[in-house]
Nucleic acid binder design. Structure first.
Length: 104
DNA sequence: TATATGACGTTGC
DNA sequence: AGCAACGCCATAT
């Protein structure tokens, strides 16, 4: 049985769009607990088949599993730029506002 | 109830 | 930039 809080996070994750990359803290914050990032990962780990978990990464942009996992492929298919095992740019999300390059 | 762990995030050095 | 420590919520023993 999920709690209201957990449900909120699930709703937030399920509401993510193809290319919208966010962090665990964001999910928790969107649910009402900006410091419950643990619970966010906990939920994604317990319900990976009920929500686009691959659209959730660390606040640093790093992936929770620095391995050639599905997450990397999923993000690539969505148009998310990855540097090894870290998101450096996304079409949407907290990483879509900080383009790495250009400088001028 | 208490202890230990986990797909986290922030702070201090 | 890298390491260590604490706080948060939920789960397992």
């Amino acid at each position: 049985m999920l709690t209201e809080f957990q449900r909120r996070m699930a709703i937030a994750v399920e509401a993510l769009q193809p290319g919208e990359v966010v962090s665990f803290g964001d999910i928790a914050a969107a649910a009402g607990r900006p410091n419950a990032s643990r619970a966010a990962g906990n939920l994604l780990a317990r319900h990976p088949a009920e929500m686009p978990w691959w659209r959730v990464v660390y606040s640093d942009g790093r992936l929770p599993a620095c391995n050639p996992s599905v997450q990397i492929e999923r993000l690539n298919e969505e148009g998310v730029t990855l540097k090894g095992c870290r998101v450096i740019a996304a079409p949407q999300g907290r990483f879509g506002n900080s383009p790495p390059s250009t400088n001028g």
